[in-house]
Simulated assay, not measured.
Amino acid sequence: MMAFKGFGPKAIPFLKALDFHQSREWFLENRDLFEQELRDPLGDLVDTLTQRFAEAGLGLRGDRKKSLFRINRDVRFAKDKRPYNRHVSAILSPDGSKAVQGVFYIHIGLEGCFAGVAWWQPEAALLLAMRRAIETWPDRFRAMVKALKKNGLELSAEDAMKRTPRGFEHVTDEDLVAAIRNRHFAVRHVIDPAGIHGPELVEELVDFTMRAKPLLDWGRAIEGRIAKD
């Protein structure tokens, strides 16, 4: 395992150039630069965070190959046919795969740099269980939200439903209604692009994930109840 030392100084300039050219020929000519400045450091970051998360008991891990998303875009069903993403990203999860929920996500790109802890687009049964938990045990949900707020975080309302989903119309408390309308349960940490080039990023990300632990604990408790049913 290589300890994370930072993304290369040309990491963001490379993404800008790739976004300008959007050419397989250009990418292949500059592949070594991509690997040195972005891909290999991201793999190092995944390995380093896996070790640090294990030490902190966070239950999140990854693999420098399987955890990284491809720079190539899947354009089969997309109107936008540009072949390359404008970012690199990776996921650390409870089992190290991309197929489970309750994950840590890292995103380094032209749209911005950020990390997230999330249940993102959970399958219908899990999303329903999370909504039922908010309805049935509101004090537990509010305690989680309060703990996040104390830690400087708040649940994202991105992509929330405009109307209350069927079966929850009787819920009237505004905070609970807003939460039940969520399609995702996530918190986010914005990373200063200037801060991606050094090993200090690891401490920043470990600190964020520790502060997001109330959300991890809340979601995992719900998943545990589903597993018992």
Rank of each mutant, 00 (worst) to 15 (best):
124 A>V: 12
84 Y>K: 09
79 K>G: 13
72 N>P: 01
91 I>F: 01
152 G>H: 12
124 A>D: 15
136 T>N: 12
100 V>G: 07
77 F>L: 08
124 A>P: 02
55 E>D: 03
158 E>Y: 11
59 G>F: 03
131 R>V: 05
71 I>V: 14
150 K>I: 02
118 A>W: 02
83 P>Y: 01
153 L>I: 08
114 F>V: 01
127 L>D: 06
80 D>P: 13
133 A>I: 08
130 M>R: 02
138 P>M: 10
59 G>W: 07
70 R>G: 14
120 W>Y: 15
66 K>P: 00
59 G>C: 05
150 K>C: 01
55 E>K: 09
125 A>L: 09
103 V>H: 05
89 S>R: 06
160 A>G: 01
163 R>D: 03
59 G>N: 00
71 I>Y: 09
147 A>N: 09
156 S>F: 04
88 V>H: 07
58 L>E: 08
156 S>M: 05
80 D>M: 11
104 F>G: 02
51 Q>D: 11
135 E>M: 13
142 R>A: 11
157 A>T: 15
106 I>W: 02
69 F>L: 03
64 R>I: 01
146 K>T: 14
110 L>V: 00
144 M>N: 05
71 I>N: 08
112 G>E: 02
98 K>V: 05
53 F>Q: 00
107 H>T: 02
141 F>M: 10
91 I>K: 05
60 L>K: 00
111 E>W: 00
62 G>Y: 03
150 K>E: 15
120 W>D: 07
160 A>I: 00
166 R>V: 08
103 V>P: 04
70 R>K: 14
80 D>F: 10
155 L>I: 07
58 L>H: 11
144 M>P: 07
56 A>C: 04
82 R>A: 14
108 I>D: 01
82 R>G: 05
166 R>P: 00
115 A>I: 02
111 E>C: 04
85 N>M: 14
56 A>R: 12
142 R>L: 15
107 H>R: 09
123 E>V: 12
104 F>R: 03
57 G>R: 03
162 K>N: 07
76 R>L: 11
134 I>A: 10
79 K>P: 04
53 F>Y: 13
162 K>Y: 05
115 A>N: 03
156 S>C: 04
167 G>T: 04
64 R>V: 01
97 S>F: 07
84 Y>L: 13
123 E>H: 12
157 A>W: 03
138 P>A: 06
138 P>L: 04
65 K>H: 12
56 A>I: 08
60 L>T: 03
139 D>E: 15
85 N>T: 11
106 I>G: 09
57 G>E: 03
57 G>Q: 07
97 S>W: 09
116 G>Q: 11
108 I>G: 05
114 F>M: 06
71 I>D: 10
155 L>S: 13
165 P>R: 00
93 S>R: 00
102 G>P: 08
112 G>R: 01
136 T>C: 02
165 P>A: 05
